[in-house]
């Protein structure tokens, strides 16, 4: 049994089924990320004074990731163009590049997560506050070793741009520590929404990588049976990937630059 318009466009609507389905899915994705962006703005506007941090994220790495994802969007576009021109070799090349760029993006994201996860804020029993990266190998059961700095007031922690360069190794006895918390989602609302949004976005990137890996590998068998159907699949997967890029285009300024 054949379902109509799986490959060719319906004359009056001008699209084939999967394309309309993908756009409908993307519409729902717009609302999903729209909900999260709305939450971000809502929470940020309503944040109590002196609680919203700035400049905590690594802008060069974020910029690099933006460019990587933009480049991968272009390579997907070219992979689709190659399919339309019936050039399987070019399709393989560009999809391979997309896969590579997607994986590098995820790698960099993973490094950024790790960087935040090992970043600690220590509150001592005498009221002093230290922040910095945990030096794992040197920390013992008695003392914590941080590569970081002392601050007098928690508010000083909020601006991440001014603190760089003045960090040194601090050894703090565990007995003095009142509270020790890493920059995990629970640390504050900014980190919570940072992890949630980029995490969900990362899952989408991962999903896109899996889809492209399939199309690059076993899925490309369809090429020899029905190149047009395969081209449609590449186009639809590309639409998804471009949407993932679009989300990052807004995530980057919203989280890294403001």
């Amino acid at each position: 049994m054949e379902i109509a318009y799986t490959v060719h466009a319906r004359p009056d609507t001008g699209v084939y089924n999967a394309k309309l389905g993908m756009w409908l899915f993307l519409a729902s994705e717009v609302m999903l990320f729209g909900g999260l962006f709305s939450a971000y703005v809502f929470l940020r506007v309503g944040a109590p004074p002196d609680t919203w941090p700035q400049g905590w994220l690594n802008v060069p790495l974020g910029t690099l990731n933006t460019l990587l994802l933009a480049a991968s969007a272009v390579t997907t576009f070219l992979a689709w163009a190659a399919c339309k021109a019936r050039r399987l070799d070019q399709f393989k090349l560009h999809t391979g590049l997309t896969l590579l760029l997607g994986c590098i993006f995820l790698g960099i994201k993973g490094y950024e997560y790790h960087d935040k996860w090992t970043h600690y804020e220590l509150r001592l029993k005498d009221g002093r506050i230290a922040e910095g990266h945990l030096v794992g190998p040197k920390s013992t059961a008695e003392a914590v070793v941080l590569k970081g700095r002392w601050v007098e007031d928690r508010r000083q922690l909020l601006d991440g741009r001014r603190s760089r360069g003045t960090w040194q190794e601090l050894t703090i006895p565990r007995a003095d520590i009142d509270r020790m918390q890493n920059y995990a989602p629970r640390h504050n609302t900014f980190l919570a929404i940072y992890y949630t949004m980029t995490g969900l976005h990362g899952l989408h990137v991962l999903g896109g990588v899996v889809v492209f890996a399939y199309l690059w590998g076993p899925g490309s068998r369809l090429w020899h049976v029905d190149p047009e159907h395969f081209t449609n699949r590449v186009e639809v997967a590309g639409l998804f990937w471009h949407f993932v890029d679009l989300v990052w285009i807004f995530l980057f300024p919203v989280l890294y630059l403001s």
Partner: peptide, 10 residues
């Protein structure tokens, strides 16, 4: 950027 990606690439 978004217009470029959506308008051209998509």
């Amino acid at each position: 950027n978004a217009i470029l990606v959506a308008g051209r690439l998509m």
